[in-house]
Design a protein around this nucleic acid. Structure first.
Lengths: 220, 220
DNA sequence: TGATTTCTTGACCAATTGGTTAAATTACGA
DNA sequence: TCGTAATTTAACCAATTGGTCAAGAAATCA
């Protein structure tokens, strides 16, 4: 019985023993509920009981699958990161700046719409000073960003983009797109448009302003 | 002694009895420390003890000035709101759009630099679903925003601004400027520029992109 | 089917947390 | 300077919270 528990411990995040169906299902449920809570209340503001209630399981059972609250948070962060980093991959330096930029922006908006909780989870982590995410920010994320900056800088050098610090151009895109996820509550308090309308307007507005503001179009 | 306590209770937020010097000083200290904690960890994630430590007072003394943790949070929100709403006042419809817009943006950037914790406090509240701020968002803030939208719409009608939903233009300005406060941790993980440099770059970038993107300049 | 492993939870525990109280200390006006 | 009101805190309390454990229920497998 002790041995069994030991083994389970190892499984949690590290080793790659095959998981039973129940294990996978329940972990999914837990992580889904945890994402909802953590993205609203942050790590400290979320209780294991909230996650239990949210997932319809007992607290003890939650802690059977993840031994510590910290482990749940870690697992949620890790899982969410995957989906998040992927669309941020480098733009194609050989492609058309207008198209590449628009593709990037559109992807980010789409992410804000389909995965707002993920966006809020990171916002919450970063507000807290990114205690767990900092290493990631400084390594993986930085690499991706550096690559994107290089591409933008090349376009600037080629006279295709306005002359501005590429990093801040990226910040502006991130900010403008994530706003629709992170500040959804505020937006909903300020307009009665439905989600459909909001994101439709967001897309056209961001397209107009950002592309118009960033691209250097000789003929205009 | 009971009467004294009763009186003190009334003072907390409502009545306008004159406060002693110590009262004002200590309330300041408490609110300052509370802002720091709440803006990082949100309401639920912050403990009264943290605020006590942060302000160098005993927990019991904190609760002498504010009877409940909730009261502290409320007081911080209220106090912070004042500084926040003021610079968002209406732009002058008779003024030059370029100048008015730039003034607005510059003010918001300045706010992000000088009062980042205030920005983060609101971000945190809104992430949590704005349980306390919602009434404010739907009334005072909405009024200010509506007024600004009207001005922007007029400029659009006059052909001075691109045709886009004014609300979303405002969102973009808010997002791009507040990003430098709310995501400071992330920004600091991605660049080694000092604050001076970051905000200088932010200003020029936002000026270029946003004005360029939003203004309709016939001669260009 | 029977044995074994996995899953689930009620009961429990210790630490933390929001909040109270009584008593001591300090500030201050007459 | 004295007395009163304001300030401060140690000690305490009840509720909440993260986490454990033993024992029962369900699934799995030989």
């Amino acid at each position: 019985m002790k041995a069994q528990h030991q083994q389970h411990t190892q499984d949690e995040l590290g080793s790659h023993r095959k998981l039973t169906r129940t294990q996978m299902q329940n972990q999914e449920r837990i992580l889904a509920a945890a994402l909802t809570e953590f993205s609203r209340f942050g790590f400290r503001g979320t209780t294991v009981d909230q996650i239990a209630t949210g997932s319809g399981m007992s607290k003890a059972n939650i802690l059977y699958y993840f031994r510590r609250k910290n482990d749940i948070y870690l697992a949620v962060l890790e899982k969410t990161l995957e989906n998040w980093l992927e669309p941020l991959q480098s733009m194609d330096p050989a492609g058309d700046p207008q198209q590449e930029l628009w593709k990037y922006i559109k992807t980010k908006i789409h992410l804000s719409r389909t995965a707002p909780e993920a966006s809020r989870l990171f916002a919450s982590e970063i507000l807290q000073g990114a205690p767990l995410l900092k290493p990631f920010l400084e390594s993986e994320l930085k690499d991706v960003v550096d690559a994107n900056c290089k591409v933008l800088q090349q376009w600037i050098d080629e006279g295709k983009l306005i002359d501005a610090p590429p990093l801040h151009l990226i910040f502006m895109i991130w900010a403008a797109t994530q706003h629709y996820a992170d500040f959804a509550t505020q937006i909903n308090a300020l307009t009665r448009d439905n989600e459909e309308q909001i994101f439709s307007d967001a897309e056209t507005t961001l397209k107009k302003v950002l592309l118009r503001g960033m691209l250097r179009t000789p003929e205009h």
